[in-house]
Each structure stands twice: as structure tokens, then as C-alpha cells.
Design a protein around this nucleic acid. Sequence first.
DNA 1: AATTATGTTCGTAACTTTGCGAACAAATCG
DNA 2: CGATTTGTTCGCAAAGTTACGAACATAATT
Lengths: 111, 111
Amino acid sequence: MAENKEYSVKQELLAKFARALGHPARIAIMEFLAGQPNCYFGDIHEELPIAKATVSQHLTALKEAGLIQGEIETPKVKYCINKDNWTLASFLFKEFFDQPINKGSNCGCSK
Amino acid sequence: MAENKEYSVKQELLAKFARALGHPARIAIMEFLAGQPNCYFGDIHEELPIAKATVSQHLTALKEAGLIQGEIETPKVKYCINKDNWTLASFLFKEFFDQPINKGSNCGCSK
DNA sequence: AATTATGTTCGTAACTTTGCGAACAAATCG
DNA sequence: CGATTTGTTCGCAAAGTTACGAACATAATT
């Protein structure tokens, strides 16, 4: 930033992942996928308090962010976590939250 | 989930933090605040490729998510990271990404 | 060829987000 | 008091999100 006043690739990527996780349904989907050996659309839908069309939309959003992948297993559709991007997201978030926070930036307002 | 088909408090909270971080400008703001001993509105604005009205909006979004705090230091406004919630968010994201991923959930699609 | 099961896509509605310039507010400076 | 500095708020436009039911697509089954 600073000189060129643009966002870095990392900032854009982190924001993309964050945005994808920015809905409780999508958090719930990721947690469900992490814990299930078989992850069919129907099972995911059963877990959520929303219509199947909406579930499909959320799955598409997660897919577009690269966090999950789908596979047709007629007549069902199997979803799973994209491990490469999961690992990447994990790394980026950890790096983000582990950045040192300048003591002077306390502003006297955080107690 | 499952029985009641609702989102947990944790899922809602994590989604709220994720959503707040779901824009590159807000990622950039947080990174800037983390690294600066003095974090005035004007300095933040200088770093970003957007109008001040928009910067103000993003700051409000971060404030509403609890990630930052503002303090009037006339005629300027000083912003800083809310450390308690930063720590909470950090914990929630780490817990989320450190959850074990079921091997069976590979679906054969993630190689 | 109809039926069934499983999801996706379409169309729509309501709402939210992002962005900007202009107007406004508050305190200080001449 | 008028002018200046610093940010916020207002009003608006364009675009994106979330949600749903209905219609559609696909493959297996009868």
C-alpha cells in the first residue's frame, strides 16, 4: 500500500476467504464437511435451516472462493473441502492474526 | 445444529468477524492499525484508494464488529484495534482452521 | 415411456454493501 | 466572527447478497 494505494494480492485473497466465511450457514457447512466422511448435498441441507436452493447458492459461493469442491455421484452430489486452499486460508488467517500489534497503537482507548 | 437446525453462537460470531474482514480495504485498515503507533483517520485515508466517506463507512463496519475502537482527539480521530475482540477473533479462526478434517471427506475429489 | 430421487438454475423480492460528492458538525485559528 | 481542519452523515446510484418456490435437468427404476 502507501505509495501505489492499491490492495496487495494477499489482502485481496484474505478478504475473499473472509467474505466466503462471512455467513453462519457457510461456517456451518465447512464445519460439517470437516467432520463427515461422506458429505452429500442432502446431508448438508438437512443440517441447515434454509431451503435447498439457498443451500446450493452457499455451496456455489464456497466453491467460487475455492474452499470446497463438488463431485457428481449420480444421483447425488458429494462435496468436500479443497485442502490446498483450506491450508492456504488457514495460513493467511494465522499470519494475519499473529502480526505484532504496535503497543503505541493502543490509543489509550483499549483500556 | 442437526436437531434444532439453528446456528450456534460461535458460528454467528465467527461469521460476523469474517464478514467484517471480507473486504480488502478493511484488511488493509487492520494491518495498518496493527503496525502504527498513531492511527488517525487521515493517515488511514491516505493509505487507501477510496474517498474519505467510504473509509469512514469501513471504519464503522469494523467498529460494529468490535474489531476496532475510535477516540476523538480534536480535531482528529484516533482509531485502534480492540484487543479483546482481536484476541477472540484470533482464537475462533484458529480453532476453526485447526479442526481435524475427516479423511473420508476427501470425496476423492481433492486428489 | 412415465416415475422417482437428487440437486441446480431461474425468476423474483427484499435487503445490504460499496462508493461518491455534497452538506454538515465541532473545535481551533486568525 | 469568519475561515480552516478534520471527519461524519446524508442522499443517492449501482451492484451484490440472501432467501424462496417453481421449473428444470439428469440418471436410475419401474
